[in-house]
């Protein structure tokens, strides 16, 4: 990437309202690698693809279109750091482009509300912009504090990758891009069982059936811990919530502190490698303490 590009930063719900530390790391890191963020004023819930779309699809389509319209009016594409929001926007755009009558339907809902919307806007995940536009070589050049010796488990999540027909990745399975981005920081991406499995949070399952949801997270955490990793790296605010909160719940149920795996969002890991201070990346505000991990990294 030779010049910086500006995106409308779509926050969603979980990131600004539950994990502002992740939001902080994104705001600190992206401009440093040539991605400028402009706030999307007045945006709502994306709305969530597993819940609101499951309750009333036309409402989901209309509210998603309104968020896209805000970016269209601002003259930028949307950038998001949540796989769920990403899925909502990608599927909404596909639906509107493949079925023009759905766009007309949305425009009818908007009538008289002062929302101009043609559907001529795109939505990208920040990891997509980092991988394709910034690139691995540039990331390697910018690294000031290589995270050598750090062993991490990469968690891609689901809506970032699927449905593969409507995603920009070169592969449809066994993806490598996030592993490569992690390795560009000097850390090692460790293989573990069922790496591409869901975190268990989506589809309204966490909200309505917590035992099933947390058990899916437990299985992933067990697999990561069996591989002997120092942290889990994710790129989705909802997966992030799931791994942070589920460990607390599991420890409470077990009556022992078995689950203590630090959960880092990719921009927090990258920020450390760029030489930023942990406080700039919100790393002092984690549910599962990052203290030991940080003293290892910073002590080196």
């Amino acid at each position: 990437m030779t010049e910086s590009r500006t995106y409308s930063f779509f926050l969603g719900c979980v990131m600004p309202n539950r994990f502002p530390n992740v939001e902080k790391s994104i705001r600190e890191v992206l401009p440093r690698i040539g991605i400028e963020l402009e706030d999307l004023q007045g945006a709502s819930c994306c709305p969530a693809p597993g819940v609101i779309r499951s309750f009333d699809e036309p409402t989901w389509l209309a509210l998603a279109s309104r968020n896209l319209a805000l970016a269209e009016q601002a003259g930028h594409d949307i950038i998001t750091g949540c796989n769920g929001c990403y899925g909502t926007f990608k599927e909404t755009l596909a639906e509107l482009h493949e079925h023009p009558e759905r766009l007309a339907e949305v425009q009818r809902v908007f009538k008289g509300l002062g929302i101009k919307f043609t559907g001529n806007v795109d939505a990208r995940h920040l990891i997509e912009v980092i991988y394709f536009d910034v690139g691995l070589d540039r990331i390697r050049e910018l690294v000031k504090r290589p995270l050598r010796g750090l062993r991490v488990a990469v968690h891609y999540g689901c809506h970032l990758l699927k449905p593969s027909k409507n995603r920009p990745w070169r592969r449809t399975q066994r993806h490598r891009f996030l592993d490569e981005l992690v390795e560009a920081t000097g850390a090692e991406s460790v293989q573990y069982r069922d790496k591409f499995m869901c975190c268990g949070a989506g589809g309204g399952v966490r909200g309505s059936n917590a035992p099933v949801s947390v058990d899916i997270a437990r299985e992933k955490l067990d697999n990561m811990m069996a591989a002997g990793v120092d942290a889990v790296i994710n790129v989705c605010s909802f997966c992030h919530l799931q791994f942070e909160f589920s460990q607390l719940q599991l420890n409470k149920e077990l009556g022992e502190n078995r689950y203590n795996l630090p959960v880092l969002y990719y921009t927090q890991l990258l920020g450390l490698a760029l030489g930023l201070e942990p406080e700039q990346l919100g790393l002092h505000k984690h549910v599962i303490s990052t203290e030991d991990l940080l003293s290892r990294i910073l002590g080196q």
Binding site: L11, P16, N17, P20, N21, E23, K24, R27, D39, L40, Q41, G42, A43, S44, F55, D56, P58, T59, A62, L63, R66, V109, F110, L113, I115, G282, K285
Partner: peptide, 30 residues
């Protein structure tokens, strides 16, 4: 504490935006 805008620049900080979102949900029957 993190130095972020205390209320995010979403419908949380704009009554006008919230009303628009609510009107959409009224019109779709939600």
């Amino acid at each position: 504490e993190l130095g972020l805008q205390e209320i995010p620049p979403t419908t949380h900080s704009s009554g006008e935006a919230l009303e628009q979102v609510q009107e959409i949900m009224r019109r779709t029957g939600f």
